[in-house]
């Protein structure tokens, strides 16, 4: 006779097997179209660069070396690759601000949608995504209409008497920022909505009954409960903004590279695929470490409240 513990263990084993089975399709697709390519790139980062793009199958650490260091073109001294560092810093800074801004705008919006009557909520979700049926390039051009010197924003501000001269927003970091917030907003709103929608408002009522103020209710009850949504939204906004390519090019006027553009340059006219590969892997490792840290942290503090 199998003991109760054995049965439980078998049951547990069966569950885990079925969990692997369930996740198999996603894992296989991701493996074929994302991990596989990544392994190719990892290999490329250790090869010698080809004369006109591509790589030669000979081992070399040049790609990795150039990520961080450069030999000065003119006096041959070794120094940190400050061009790369300043591009990384710009990307990280703009992405953090973008994530924060989308959260500030997106949270109340998701909350608003989640508190509509049940049968209209999905229509609101649709309304959030409709502007995104037009592709990124067209949207970026449309954004240009709003922020250019003769655009709607400046005309409005002048009409209101807030400013006299149009503000030069186009081709500055502000333009990149506006563009990224606009483009990535739904990536924040939708996951937030998905987790806010199941919020049990009786908990909030209980909070008020216990004489908690509005802020306290928001901070101590609502935020901890929707933490998974905030985590998901932040990841979905932060990571793609780090690699943004089209927005810096069109709205930023292409004058200041971001990481996405720097990597693209290496695979394009820069013809240094190993460096491009090494830069990408560096970026990914950084992102992954940041994400692990973030998720761990969020889980821990979420557990404390919940």
């Amino acid at each position: 006779m199998a003991s109760a513990a054995d049965v439980a263990r078998q049951e547990e084993g069966r569950k885990i097997r079925s969990r692997w089975l369930l996740s198999a399709p996603a894992l296989v697709i991701v493996f074929i179209a994302a991990i596989g390519p990544l392994l190719v790139m990892l290999a490329y980062s250790f090869m010698t660069k080809g004369d006109y793009g591509d790589v030669k199958p000979a081992f070399s650490l040049d790609g990795w070396f150039s990520v961080l260091f450069q030999r000065d073109m003119f006096d041959d001294t070794l120094s940190l690759a400050d061009a790369h560092l300043s591009i990384v810093w710009r990307s990280v800074r703009l992405s953090v601000i973008t994530t924060f801004a989308t959260l500030v705008l997106g949270f109340p919006t998701a909350y608003f949608i989640a508190t509509r009557p049940r049968n209209t909520r999905e229509v609101w979700v649709f309304l959030v995504t409709i502007p995104f049926w037009t592709n990124l390039l067209i949207r970026t051009f449309a954004m240009q209409q709003v922020i250019r010197n003769e655009g709607i924003l400046n005309s409005l501000l002048i009409w209101l008497g807030i400013i006299r001269e149009p503000l030069q927003i186009m081709y500055t970091d502000w333009a990149i920022l506006f563009g990224m917030v606009y483009v990535y907003l739904p990536l924040m709103v939708l996951p937030l909505y998905a987790s806010l929608e199941k919020l049990d408002f009786r908990l909030i009522e209980a909070g008020y009954d216990l004489y908690a103020g509005r802020l306290a209710v928001l901070r101590r009850i609502i935020l901890p409960l929707v933490k998974p949504g905030i985590v998901a939204g932040s990841i979905l906004v932060f990571i793609p903004s780090l690699g943004a390519y089209v927005i810096p090019r069109v709205l930023g006027g292409g004058k200041n590279l971001m990481l996405g553009n720097l990597i693209e340059l290496q695979f394009g006219s820069g013809r240094n695929w190993p460096l491009g590969a090494a830069l990408s892997i560096t970026l990914m490792v950084l992102v992954m470490v940041a994400m692990l840290f973030y998720v761990r942290n969020a889980a821990r503090s979420g557990g404390g409240h919940g």
Binding site: V30, A34, G36, P37, L38, P240, F267, M284, V287, M291
Partner: peptide, 15 residues
């Protein structure tokens, strides 16, 4: 599962 998010587009593209 989240890895495709982290790989810069151009890398996936070239590979």
């Amino acid at each position: 599962i989240n890895l495709p998010l982290m790989v810069p587009e151009i890398v996936t593209a070239v590979a």
